[in-house]
């Protein structure tokens, strides 16, 4: 590419990376403590851990942040090493599908699961 001026983007992505890092720095240890405080021995104990709404909201938020953080990181790596636009685009899509899918799946598990047991 000959152009040597900015595309006026990138700051948002960079901010997302920093912001999600902050969220992860707070939320991950929080969740970890919550889990370790009452280490479940069986499946029902495990389920009980996820019963409070705040835990499920926190978990989904944290995992969304993790996915976004991972997206920026993966994107950075692809930008570094994959210089063919087509290949890079394909990799972006793959990562987006995997990450977005994972978050969606998680949402189904933590929220869909409760609905299922209630029914």
């Amino acid at each position: 590419m000959k152009s040597t001026t900015g595309s006026h983007t990138g700051t948002g992505t960079w901010l997302v990376q920093r912001a999600t890092a902050l969220v992860l720095a707070v939320a991950l240890p929080g969740l970890m403590i919550h889990f370790l405080a009452a280490l479940p021995v069986d499946f029902s104990g495990w389920q009980a851990l996820f019963l409070p709404l705040w835990v499920r909201v926190m978990l989904l938020l944290t995992m969304t942040a993790l996915a976004l953080h991972a997206w920026v990181g993966m994107r950075d790596i692809f930008m570094d090493y994959v210089h063919s636009t087509g290949a890079r685009l394909a990799m972006y899509l793959t990562v987006i599908v995997i990450l977005a899918g994972s978050v969606a799946w998680l949402a189904v598990i933590v929220f869909g699961g409760t609905q299922g047991s209630a029914a």
Partner: peptide
């Protein structure tokens, strides 16, 4: 700042 605001030009710096 316009000139630099770019995922490649500036934000390759980690």
């Amino acid at each position: 700042l316009d000139n630099l605001e770019d995922p490649y030009r500036l934000y390759r710096c980690r």
